[in-house]
């Protein structure tokens, strides 16, 4: 069997990490064991920041990255991170076989990796804080907020907060001690990373929409048999659906899991969402500046879905 080592950053119990494991088994089954998939999660082999280059270079055969990790390396991958832009789950169900996905796959191949699977991770994020849930833009005034990326911080600043950068591993401690007052994370992570131990007010809003995608070293992919390639195609399509299901389930279960811990959970209404969007979106767009031809074409393709 051909060894295929895949690195990703998610902790093993994360709902998408489980989809990755299921995908690995499916690839092995469909290829009749031609491919031996070995998953190295939780940054245990290659760090999250190094996955892309390590795979393209051929140090490892395969890796999974969150879309925003492409950053300036391939900015078009970040089109979905605009606040409130891609909350609609139907887009994600159609996504793997869409023209938009094919367009991105071409871009990835030009850059030097072969995309094999799209895993929608979340459209259900939470604002966390102490006291009362953050609902109206005024509630954010003066808070020290955990920062995410420069354009997103611009949106947070527009709400009157002070974004403060820190690595994910330090957020819990920072929230516990008050170095930051509030954070934004997906519902599943708010549960798994125990934010409810140090925060007591949560607002569920579809503000961020992130996906994990799996890609191979192109030379390694070319060296595979047709049967193996076929197996990767099929497993990729199946896993995309599993990811949507798992994300929907995690998003649906998250608020109740939080409530069980005795914290306040508020689900934002459409009006409240519209008010937040009207403040955050213009600031984000100005800082992000996604006005090149490729980004526009991708946005058009997504509109067609």
């Amino acid at each position: 069997a051909t060894e295929m080592r895949c690195s990703h950053q998610l902790p093993p119990a994360h709902h998408i990490a489980k989809v990755v494991d299921r995908w690995a088994e499916e690839v092995e089954t469909l290829s009749d064991g031609e491919i031996d998939v070995q998953i190295f999660g939780a940054d245990s082999l290659v760090g999250a920041r190094e996955n892309i280059v390590a795979t393209a270079k051929g140090d490892i055969e395969c890796a999974f990255s969150l879309n925003f990790q492409w950053g300036k390396t391939l900015p078009i991958m970040n089109v979905t991170v605009a606040p409130f832009a891609f909350g609609d789950i139907e887009i994600w169900e159609k996504w793997p076989e869409s023209e938009a996905a094919a367009f991105l796959e071409d871009k990835l191949e030009e850059k030097g990796v072969k995309n094999v699977v799209w895993m929608f991770q979340t459209n259900s994020t939470v604002f966390t804080t102490n006291g009362e849930p953050l609902v109206a833009p005024e509630d954010f005034e003066g808070l020290k907020f955990r920062g995410l990326t420069p354009p997103f911080d611009a949106a947070l600043r527009a709400l009157g907060t002070t974004p403060t950068a820190m690595p994910g591993s330090e957020v819990y401690q920072a929230l516990a001690t008050g170095i930051v007052d509030a954070a934004l994370t997906d519902v599943a992570a708010a549960v798994s990373r125990k934010y409810f131990e140090v925060q007591d007010a949560f607002t569920v809003v579809p503000v961020l929409s992130a996906y994990l995608h799996g890609y191979l070293n192109p030379e390694f992919y070319e060296g595979l048999s047709d049967k193996s390639k076929q197996a990767l195609d099929e497993a990729g399509l199946k896993a995309a659906q599993w990811a949507v299901e798992a994300s929907v389930a995690a998003s649906a279960a998250g608020p109740d899991q939080l409530r069980e811990k005795g914290v306040k959970v508020h689900i934002a209404t459409d009006e409240e969402i519209a008010r937040l969007e009207s403040v955050m979106r213009p600031a984000f767009d100005e800082a992000f500046g996604a006005n090149d031809a490729d980004s526009q074409k991708l946005l058009d393709l997504i509109d067609k879905m």
């Binding site: 920041r49 280059v53 390396t73 920062g147």
Partner: peptide, 22 residues
């Protein structure tokens, strides 16, 4: 050195507040 030359030709940038070539 291998990593540096590859990252240079690949054109990879760090993610975050300082976007420099890796």
């Amino acid at each position: 050195w291998d990593s540096i030359t590859f990252a240079y030709s690949f054109g990879s940038y760090s993610v975050g507040y300082v976007e420099i070539e890796t």
